[in-house]
């Protein structure tokens, strides 16, 4: 883990070596342009939020950054290394992990096994050993134990992931991304569908993650975004509209116009 960056300078100030960057990123679905010329620089050890109305291309951006879909143009770098053509599973080994907007777990496997697999995903070829038993004690198991405690999933560790409550599933969903011990962690609407109590815990978790990871997250709850983000990027219609510190973004007239009439206007405080 790298040390926390000493300064909290405004995101727009000066050049820095980003943990994750996209330059001129484009994505097309057939003739539909889902992303157009998106440039994004995520500072190391910061919490970076992406907001925007539905259909703005936020999840598509995540898919492109993690390699789930192919880009039509542009360049993606992770810690200065070009990963534009790297396969999604290889990007995990390079230190990029994500959670999904729609919970995506191994439903019939236990919570512990879900996390163990996610931890193992960092060294996947070691798992391609048809004779090797799963070790009782190794780095992956240590990660699993630590995560079970941190996410308060210890009591349900032996249950099948598909049987958990929604809140527990959302925590496990984020835990799966953390288990890979990534440098950069992408969270797609981590609080979606959560109750008030769960949201508080999740907010603390994300803020916490920002201390030793770089966090990029998509969120509709403006309270959380304004509270814990160092930088906010606003997207609309597949493009970046505005980027800056939370307060600046909130007061930006263009953002206000973009959100006018949108369902999340009320959340902009």
């Amino acid at each position: 883990m790298t040390a926390a960056s000493p300064t909290h300078a405004p995101a727009s100030a000066g050049a820095f070596e980003p943990a994750l960057a996209a330059e001129g990123l484009g994505v097309r679905y057939g003739s539909f342009v889902a992303l157009k010329d998106v440039t994004l620089r995520v500072r190391a050890n910061s919490v970076h939020a992406i907001i925007g109305p539905n259909g703005a291309g936020k999840t598509t951006l995540f898919h492109a950054l993690t390699g789930r879909i192919r880009t039509a143009g542009g360049r993606i770098t992770l810690g200065g290394r070009d990963i534009t053509r790297t396969r999604d599973d290889d990007r995990v080994r390079l230190g990029l992990a994500r959670s999904f907007q729609v919970t995506s777990l191994f439903a019939t496997l236990s919570v512990r096994e879900n996390l163990r697999l996610a931890a193992q995903g960092r060294t996947p070829w070691a798992a391609l050993a048809p004779w090797r038993r799963v070790p009782e004690h190794d780095a992956a198991q240590d990660t699993v134990r630590a995560l079970l405690q941190r996410l308060d999933l210890g009591p349900v560790a032996g249950r099948a992931a598909g049987e958990l409550s929604h809140g527990q599933q959302r925590r496990l969903e984020v835990g799966m991304a953390m288990a890979a011990r990534p440098k950069v962690i992408l969270l797609d609407e981590p609080t979606s569908g959560m109750g008030t109590d769960d949201i508080g815990a999740m907010t603390d978790l994300i803020r916490d993650l920002g201390r030793d990871h770089t966090v990029l997250f998509i969120e509709h709850n403006m309270g959380i975004v304004m509270n814990i983000s160092d930088t906010v990027t606003v997207m609309r219609a597949g493009q970046v509209l505005v980027e800056g510190r939370p307060a600046a973004v909130r007061d930006d007239p263009e953002v206000r116009r973009a959100y006018l009439g949108n369902m999340i206007t009320g959340d902009l405080r």
């Binding site: 599973d89 290889d90 995990v92 080994r93 999904f100 697999l117 890979a180």
Partner: peptide
Amino acid sequence: ARASAIGFP
């Protein structure tokens, strides 16, 4: 999809 997303080829 998730197996791939957590790093398995």
